[in-house]
Design a protein around this nucleic acid. Structure first.
Length: 363
DNA sequence: AACTCGGGGAC
DNA sequence: GTCCCAGAGTT
């Protein structure tokens, strides 16, 4: 407990101020705040990992429309789950959600174990903070959360030095979060902490004048709100290059391959990728003999958090190739199927959909 | 403790 | 262009 910075307020006073602010200025009409079942809260919390609310909302609506219950999610194919995840990123979340749903049906009677933090956090895709959020939001039982919003607010309030990704810093923030979390009104308290960080104590331009803690905030007193939390130490992004084969048959359909189950774009469908033209030609010799290469299209780049990928689309034509082998399919860009696609692939296919027989300008 | 895993919003 | 977001899993 000596790890905990000095609290700026007693817990009861902190809660009173926060909840009073939340009553007047909090968000009360997010899609997962109605019919607050453990299942809906769970799905929302998974989608909201490292993803902003405005981005999540349409995905959440489509997901709930297609999978209204845990049982229906468990019975679906992974392809269909990933299809609804296309564009949301971090696809392991979708795979883990699906896997957890099947495990819950088989081993937990089709219910989330919301009475146990440990049982919840033992499910794939659910860590400490998400487990706490699910319990707090769906049962009202006391549970502590520490997401990006809470980290930002608490690190400013107490001027906690160091990048929150460092375990030592994260431990101090957990201790503070633990200290302030109440026994009562946990649903509102939890939502209020996230709303405070998302709407007031924002990363770029915090609105300190409207903050219920402006008078006790250490960072504000020093005029250093912007310095907290400390940014992640950065390093140069490596650049990788790849060729993406856009092999079309006489009907304009495009050959897709399903990617390995784990790793980048795991389980999604994509274009065959190659390091260089030699490897691409070798592959064509084996899998699509007689295919005719066309001039490549302009390269474009796609930036990930840890590297930049420069993609050169390499179009080719083939006729009379019906059997394409395991984990491959012919995809009609004008009539998309319900499968998961990597974002740049989806963009590339969309750009050629209306002009299946013409070379597009690029995505 | 460091690395992997996405896409988009905000600036 | 940069930064980072309702983090978790793997090494």
């Amino acid at each position: 407990m000596r790890e905990m910075p000095e609290p700026v307020l007693e817990a009861a006073e902190f809660q009173r101020r926060l909840l009073d602010w939340f009553n007047r200025h909090g968000r009360h009409d997010l899609p997962w705040q109605c019919q607050r079942t453990p299942y809906r809260v769970w799905v929302s919390e998974i989608m909201l990992q490292q993803t902003q609310v405005a981005t999540v909302i349409p995905y959440f609506e489509r997901f709930m429309d297609r999978f209204p219950t845990l049982a229906e999610l468990a019975e679906a194919s992974q392809d269909e789950v990933l299809h609804l995840w296309t564009g949301l990123g971090y696809y392991a979340r979708g795979r883990n959600l699906h896997k957890a749903a099947q495990r819950l049906m088989a081993e937990h009677g089709g219910e989330l174990p919301v009475a146990s933090l440990e049982a919840l956090a033992g499910l794939p895709g659910i860590g400490c903070s998400t487990a706490g959020a699910i319990i707090a939001q769906s049962t009202g039982q006391r549970a502590v959360i520490l997401d990006g919003n809470v980290k930002r607010s608490l690190s400013r309030l107490h001027a906690v030095e160091g990048w929150p990704g460092r375990p030592a810093v994260e431990r101090r923030l957990w201790a503070l979060a633990e200290h302030y979390t109440p026994e009562e009104r946990v649903v509102d308290y939890t939502q209020a902490m996230m709303d405070l960080g998302a709407t007031l104590c924002r990363r770029g331009t915090p609105e300190c004048s409207r903050c219920p803690f402006v008078d006790v905030c250490v960072a504000h007193a020093r005029g250093e709100q912007r310095r907290f939390p400390e940014p992640k130490p950065k390093k140069a992004l490596p650049t990788r290059t790849t060729l993406m084969l856009v092999l079309q048959d006489s009907g304009g359909r495009v050959l897709l391959e399903q990617r390995p189950a784990s790793g980048l774009w795991g389980g999604l469908w994509g274009l065959p990728q190659f390091d260089d033209l030699v490897a691409l030609r070798d592959w064509l010799d084996v899998h699509a003999p007689g295919a005719a290469l066309q001039p490549n299209w302009p390269a474009f780049s796609h930036t990930f958090s840890h590297f930049k990928l420069e993609i050169t689309p390499q179009p080719a034509r083939v006729v009379g190739l019906d059997s394409v082998g395991e984990a491959r399919c012919w995809y009609d860009p004008g009539n998309p199927g319900r499968i998961g696609l990597a974002a740049p692939v989806k963009s590339l296919l969309a750009s050629l959909a209306p002009f299946a027989l013409a070379a597009p300008e690029g995505p």
